[in-house]
């Protein structure tokens, strides 16, 4: 009935996180992601979406609670085991984090090089993917002279190139127009069809609404994951409605403020 046990890709139990001595940015977060699921992580700016993703891609350790990834309890996983786990996770960072002295090609190639894939294979896959995200003519260009949207696409290509088991994307369509946003979303859906579990953090409710995937909603450090049944069945109508209404309410209030 619930997505319990070691078959979950991600599992949080009463996880809390504070930065330094600050307040708890995340409080008592519990949820589980089944293999092959596709979730949007929604929440206002500052709600803690990026922080939650950082916990998932092992850039942060929780101050309390339990996190397990691919059935491994992170509290008891040694540092030496982390690279193997991280190679199964693709991340689109909110600020891209491209290496500025490397070309688009070399940036996208990194996960394959780190995993010691042969150079001629790398060449083929990377060029193909860069072509797919519309950067065919920018293969040898450094990120510093690419536009924000182009950099974002390089970052996405780098996150998906090694066909990760888990893809975490932090506002992956923040810098591209609607058409490209939908194209990138379809890239994620293709990956999802191949079995990748996907979590996309966004504050763009409309985008999330257009694709009928279940949502996780962060509000002031608390997570509303819906019921496990809803998650498993992907019943999202109620969630979509709630999202739409809260969005229109937010728009109204910002309009009245002007």
């Amino acid at each position: 009935m619930t997505t319990e046990g070691s078959d979950c890709v991600v599992r949080f139990e009463s996880v809390g996180l504070r930065y330094g001595l600050g307040p708890e940015v995340l409080q008592d977060i519990s949820f589980a992601l089944a293999p092959g699921s596709f979730h949007f992580l929604l929440g206002a700016s500052g709600a803690g979406k990026s922080t939650l993703l950082k916990l998932m891609y092992l850039a942060l350790k929780p101050t309390r609670g339990l996190i397990s990834l691919f059935g491994h309890n992170m509290a008891t996983t040694s540092r030496r085991q982390l690279p193997a786990l991280r190679r199964r996770i693709g991340v689109v960072f909110q600020d891209f984090r491209l290496l500025h002295h490397l070309s688009a090609f070399d940036n996208v190639a990194l996960p394959l090089r780190v995993a010691r894939v042969r150079e001629n294979e790398i060449r083929k896959h990377v060029v193909e993917l860069l072509t797919w995200v519309g950067l065919k003519d920018h293969v040898n260009i450094r990120p510093t002279i690419l536009s924000g949207g182009q950099q974002q696409r390089v970052a996405i290509a780098r996150a998906v190139i090694a066909r990760p088991k888990l893809l975490l994307a932090d506002e992956p369509t923040g810098n591209v127009d609607d058409r490209m946003a939908m194209r990138l979303m379809h890239l994620f859906e293709e990956l999802n069809k191949l079995g990748t579990t996907i979590v996309i953090a966004t504050h763009n409710e409309t985008l999330a609404g257009r694709l009928g995937h279940p949502r996780l909603r962060l509000d002031a450090g608390w997570l509303d994951a819906g019921t496990p049944d809803q998650q498993a069945a992907g019943k999202t109508a109620a969630g979509a409605f709630a999202a739409a209404t809260s969005k229109s309410r937010a728009e109204q209030s910002s309009e009245s403020a002007v």
């Binding site: 850039a59 690279p83 190679r87 991340v91 996960p111 780098r158």
Partner: peptide, 16 residues
């Protein structure tokens, strides 16, 4: 440090 952290998050081992 930044770039090394990215390499780590991508799954690079210390030996890399």
């Amino acid at each position: 440090r930044e770039a090394i952290e990215v390499l780590h998050l991508i799954g690079a081992q210390d030996t890399y």
